[in-house]
Simulated assay, not measured.
Amino acid sequence: MSTTAIASSELTDLLAVLARARGFLRHTVRGLTDEQARLTPTASQLSLGGLVKHVRTVEEGWLRFAVGGAELMESVEADWENGFRMLPHETLDGLLADYAETAAATERTLAGLDLDTAHPLPVAPWFEAGASWSVRTVVLHVIAETSQHSGHADIIRETIDGQKTMG
């Protein structure tokens, strides 16, 4: 198998795992009203709509990093105060539509990138100084972030109405 075919197969596998993680999150919020999606019924201040919004923002930021490094990632100002909240003017359907657009853009973008391309990480206390991440590592990070928040969403949904994603 050629190097290009191996890279394509690897990207196909990574995107399939990411799609599955996104699917769990979308399934978890299925059938909710906007009011339910805004609820914060656990000890945290997380809401289901806020989680959908957050994973979209995170995915977009890391994809900017994959394309152009920390400078491009940081070129869009993050709204940290409202990043985990579903605001009164937002709807769950709208957040899910935005998330679907992000997913499609991610797949198109990654199709044109080399998974081995690496960029230095942004300067932040949670990153090792001078470390770099490859596009592959970025995709794995987005998968982990989406999966972690899908688990949070499952707990919140079960608290709201007893519904579980699995089980």
Rank of each mutant, 00 (worst) to 15 (best):
S2Q: 09
L63N: 06
L15T: 02
N82E: 06
T3Y: 01
R108F: 00
G31H: 06
A153G: 05
F127Y: 15
A66V: 04
N82P: 01
I160Q: 08
K53V: 04
R56C: 05
V123E: 11
A153H: 04
A105M: 11
F84R: 12
T3H: 08
D93A: 15
V58K: 09
R108G: 06
L72H: 05
E60K: 11
R108W: 00
V138M: 06
T165L: 13
L72V: 08
E145G: 07
L25F: 06
E128L: 14
V55M: 08
I160R: 07
G61V: 05
T40M: 12
S44E: 07
L51Y: 01
L32A: 10
R64W: 00
G162N: 11
H54Y: 09
S47M: 06
S132E: 15
N82V: 02
D13Q: 15
K164A: 14
S147D: 00
L63P: 00
I160S: 10
A66D: 04
T42D: 13
G94A: 10
T117R: 15
S2I: 04
A144I: 01
T28S: 10
G151D: 06
F24A: 12
L18T: 04
L15C: 13
G68F: 09
H141S: 06
A97H: 11
E74G: 03
A105W: 12
V138C: 13
E128W: 03
Q45F: 08
E101K: 15
A111V: 08
A100W: 03
I160V: 14
G130L: 11
L113Q: 09
G49N: 05
T57G: 15
